[in-house]
């Protein structure tokens, strides 16, 4: 078995996540795209774990998941707060901090 297809898949998913972050305006969808990027990197970690024959990569993926969970909790709470005050979930509307 070869690891290269996994890595390429990981790269493609990551890139799609990037483009999603850049093009979507709904904060929640943007956030989902961020999760997609995290998952793509997790795939690469797990693949490398297999390729190198140790579990360090899996441990790394595990930590990424934990941190992602914490991040999602806080991030969604922030989105909620913004929505509550501005009645909008668009990331473009929260653009007061400018020149």
């Amino acid at each position: 078995m070869s690891t290269e297809p996994y890595i390429v898949l990981s790269a493609i998913l990551f890139t799609i996540g990037c483009v999603g972050v850049l093009t979507r305006r709904n904060a929640i969808v943007v956030f989902m795209c961020v999760e997609l990027m995290l998952n793509a990197s997790n795939l690469a970690l797990v693949t490398f774990a297999k390729a190198n024959g140790n579990l360090e990569g899996q441990v790394g993926a595990f930590f990424v998941m934990v941190v992602a969970a914490a991040e999602v909790v806080v991030g969604l709470a922030i989105i909620m707060t913004i929505f509550r005050t501005r009645r909008s979930a668009s990331v473009d509307d929260a653009s007061l901090l400018k020149y």
Binding site: C18, L22, A94, S95, L96, L97, K98, Y99
Partner: peptide, 17 residues
């Protein structure tokens, strides 16, 4: 330059990319 600071997160993310 300050025009670049347009407040849009997504355009910042673009330069990040």
């Amino acid at each position: 330059f300050r025009r670049w600071q347009n407040g849009f997160v997504r355009s910042y993310a673009l330069s990040l990319l």
